[in-house]
Computed example of a mutant assay.
Amino acid sequence: MKQLALDIGLATGPTLSRFFAGPNEAALQHVRLAAGVGSNPATRSPVPTYLWGESGSGKSHLLHAVRQALRDEGGHVGWLDPSMAEPPEFDEAWSAVLMDDVHLYSTAQQAMAFNWFVNAISPASGSQRWVLAAGELPPADLPLRDDLRSRLGWGHVFQLQLLGEPERRAVLRQEADARGVFLSDDVMDYMLNRFSRDLGSLMQLLDQLDAYALRAQRAITIPLLKAMLESE
């Protein structure tokens, strides 16, 4: 009988502490301060922030990390991304509003995003809420309604840069360590030379490889990686 390995991997969700900043240190420090994690919600920045850059530059990581950090403090956060066909109405209980991949929003999502933005900056009650948004294009080039596009570019705007190969290697090593697994230099060379170098794709590959190695109860090697690919 085949023995099933228990999923005992370490938690690996995006966090601010595990964001490998590289050339994006200024954006990371701004997000830390603006989020005001550990401080009174009333002291958080009321000025919106927009992050833009190519896929894999870390935008979604930062948004998910901020959402988790605020949730860990017991906060409620508004979240909107293109997968949400029917986003909820603005909630006065929210301490912040996070909007990911805004360049892909439908007409209905744009209308709701604008509504959230207005309510966050000019709330009916309580203090202003911080708005953190992200997309692949600078604000002026976003294919969105004019009033939403202008508001996304009104506050702090940061362009995130893709990491170079040495930095991608460092991220792979860091994420493997967080999962409690060892990646040899040969395995990293294989991953970087044979697959998409987009950081998001590499993280997805690492997740799949970690889970496959756990089920097979084997160390991560190039033969194991090849076996995983052949089995899918």
Rank of each mutant, 00 (worst) to 15 (best):
P223E: 10
G58S: 03
Q159S: 13
F90Y: 15
R71S: 13
E232K: 11
H61C: 11
S122Q: 14
R194T: 13
A170D: 09
A227I: 02
D81V: 03
E136I: 05
F20Q: 11
L98K: 01
L214V: 08
A108P: 00
A27K: 03
P41S: 09
A11G: 07
A111F: 00
R179D: 10
P139S: 11
Y212R: 03
D100C: 11
A21I: 02
L10E: 15
G164I: 02
A26R: 12
E86T: 13
L51T: 02
A69R: 01
Q3A: 15
P46H: 12
A216P: 03
H76I: 14
T107C: 09
D100L: 05
L172Y: 00
T43E: 15
N119P: 02
V131T: 06
Q217Y: 01
P139V: 06
V187D: 07
T12S: 15
F20P: 00
V102T: 05
L63G: 10
G153E: 02
S150E: 04
P138Y: 05
R194S: 15
T43F: 07
N24T: 01
G75V: 08
G78E: 08
L192C: 04
S150R: 07
N40S: 13
A176S: 05
E136M: 04
A124W: 04
A113T: 07
L80Y: 02
G22L: 01
F90V: 02
M228A: 08
S95N: 10
G135E: 04
P223D: 10
H30N: 06
D81A: 14
A65G: 12
L160Q: 09
G78P: 00
A227S: 14
V131F: 04
G155R: 05
G36V: 01
P82N: 10
R194M: 09
V37L: 11
M188A: 08
M112C: 13
V171R: 02
Q208F: 01
H61S: 13
H103Y: 09
T107V: 14
W154H: 13
H76S: 15
D185L: 08
D185V: 13
T49E: 06
P87A: 11
I220G: 04
D100E: 13
F19A: 08
A111T: 13
D198L: 01
A227Y: 03
R145P: 03
F20I: 10
K59D: 05
I222S: 03
K226G: 03
F90I: 00
T49R: 02
Q29G: 11
G155D: 08
D101G: 07
H30E: 07
K226S: 10
R129K: 15
F90P: 08
Q161P: 00
L162R: 08
